[in-house]
Design a protein around this nucleic acid. Structure first.
Lengths: 355, 355
DNA sequence: CGTGTGGGGGAATGCGCATTCCTCCAGGCT
DNA sequence: AGCCTGGAGGAATGCGCATTCCCCCACACG
């Protein structure tokens, strides 16, 4: 099989092979390839590089990591890559990581938040240099405490941790101003003439969903409008969740003129439900979302929403994790920008929608 | 600082610490924690587990990898996670990897295909167990040859490689039947009455784009319809590419009654362009895409497309890479399913669109 | 009661590399 | 000419772990 004299499959060329081929010691080969405080004579340096090239040498990252005592791995933990919200954040983080010569490993919880714990432990085992945890914290004191302990253990072992979520754990965090964004959105919608709102509030445990819901309500009330408790519908934080919640709302009956879905994919689900029920858009019901997902910018009617710089969130978290740790955990607040589009036209008359 | 008597930051607890705490040898601790052909006396076993637990021990994956000579890392190389096509495939792969106790590391080329080479080399250095490369091959013999060499080197060092793309490299490949899917789509559209088509063909170098374009043309011609060379517009493989290409087509003028964009995001861009130019949808121009991106299933008019089981593509590639290698590289063909929706209503009369 | 046998604990080895320490040599100085 | 110094190559060490090999002990059998 290997008449070409190649090594057995599975056996890869090591630094020692390179050193031998170059006729130098292992130490010199290492110095030539990785640089060092020590200098290597130019001709030897040259020979080592040539040998490595011709042998197609690729340093064993595991061994390097062990010898050096640290890796260049950054763990990224998020709920679902297939969700455009998370994939955009991931793209931002990955891009930034590549600039820093860091390798990103990714894990998804797929909605089971307790898996964050497992992944964090696994990444500690990987001796990952840092971990970025993206996703809403949930209303569960026990879980938060356990996660905080796990984060401490990770940092204790020399790693860095950052969150993109609520600031519930003492660690660097990129905080999205969900409440403020939702409040501003509500106020803007009130200025358009709306006085009665419904909210598709997503999963009740998710703090992101809660913050957006309560912020919206706050803004509405402040502007003299109403969000009745009966007009707040919980459900999934997904497209189908939005669809179902909208249907439930219509079944209940509502006199809201505008419905706020706590994220864009839910809003799109809600629009689909409205259309299926024969409600004209946007005249029959105004719809607003949150996030400004790029892929959804071309839906019709164009969706009013709160724009979030998603890629920046990921890049920002990576930047925090690359910096030296501060005395106190840092918080980077990111605000959303209200974007009014066709899905929420000015209301001529505040008359209730038929429902 | 460490009045609690904790170890210096950066120093993590090792297997030896656990062994000492349990009053056994390192070997026994290893056997208890990882299992072995050898059995460990139950009480010692118990003690080791308890010690590991109380010390919050987490095995150093690097060291394990080195001692065992292999890792449980799977590299995923794709062009852009933020693109829903790739993120869906990634989600499928990650899900499948988790079932196999594998860790996924992700890298993005962001459209620069030559980076696949770099990442593959880096993953060889990681001693990754396997690599999955997702994305269209490009028309570039030199690049393909270099990639093939890099793949050989990777396999030579004991790793496995799979592609989700065209079958250009001798390795396990999940092949999407782009040509066949596009052909079927064209035929279906012809049955709706269309006789003149335009194609927004994406980047000319991408084989995926080429295959879809030529397959579509093939199907159209076979069904007695036409796709004039002047009605094929190249551009970006993105939403903005679709938008620009559609505008270019309208500027040129066309008498096509239906435009096929080689993927869904381009189709959405095209619809936006049509709308901006005042063309009524779907009556003024029928539009079809390819992929059936989940996030885009609610656009209006609902987009006719070719459905691809994206998550399955990722999961399938992972399955191939987990299996023992076959004598001959495997090929798993995946076909798309034509889904006719409102964006391509039956054509009553084949009259040209105003353009 | 002596010897054989098998199960299981422990010491030692090596994985591939960075790094420290030792050594040697060349050049400059007195 | 002899000594010192700095620069650079090489041997050795250790990172944390799996695994091999050795040995001891308990039990069974003759």
């Amino acid at each position: 099989m290997s008449e070409r004299g190649e090594r057995a499959p599975g056996a890869s060329v090591t630094l020692l092979d390179v050193a031998k081929a170059a006729g130098v010691s292992l130490a010199t080969a290492s110095r030539a390839l990785n640089g060092s405080t020590r200098r290597v004579r130019p001709d030897l340096h040259e020979r080592v590089l040539a040998a490595a090239e011709s042998l197609h040498y690729s340093a064993n990252a595991q061994a390097q990591a062990m010898a050096r005592g640290r890796t260049n791995i950054v763990g990224l933990v998020l709920s679902d890559v297939a969700d455009p919200y998370f994939s955009s954040i991931a793209a931002g983080a990955i891009r930034a990581a590549e600039d820093e010569q860091l390798v990103v490993t990714m894990a998804c919880t797929f909605g089971r938040e307790e898996r964050e714990l497992e992944y964090l432990a696994a990444l500690r085992g990987q001796r990952a240099r840092a971990v970025i945890i993206v996703g809403s914290r949930v209303q569960d004191r026990g879980l938060i405490d356990r996660l905080a302990a796990e984060v401490r253990a990770f940092e204790q072992s020399g790693g860095r941790v950052a969150f993109v979520s609520q600031r519930k754990i003492p660690a660097d965090t990129v905080v999205v101003e969900n409440r403020g964004g939702a409040r501003a959105l509500a106020e803007a919608l009130c200025r358009l003439g709306h006085r009665r709102f419904a909210v598709l509030a997503g999963r009740a445990e998710l703090l992101t969903a809660r913050d957006r819901t309560s912020g919206f309500r706050e803004g509405a009330v402040r502007a003299g409008a109403r969000v009745d408790a009966g007009d707040i519908v919980y459900g999934g934080f997904t497209r189908d969740g939005g669809y179902a919640a909208m249907n439930e709302l219509l079944d209940r009956g509502t006199d809201a003129t505008c419905v706020f879905a706590v994220n864009d994919v839910m809003a799109v689900g809600a629009m689909a439900a409205l259309r299926d029920r024969g409600v004209a858009l946007p005249s029959g019901m105004a719809v607003a979302g949150f996030d400004d997902i790029a892929t959804l910018r071309d839906v019709t009617p164009a969706l009013t929403t709160v724009r979030l710089p998603l890629e920046e969130l990921g890049a920002g978290a990576l930047a925090m994790v690359v910096q030296d740790p501060a005395e106190q955990p840092r918080v980077r607040r990111v605000r959303g920008e209200v974007v009014l589009r066709e899905s929420t036209p000015p209301l001529v008359q505040g008359e209730p929608v038929r429902a």
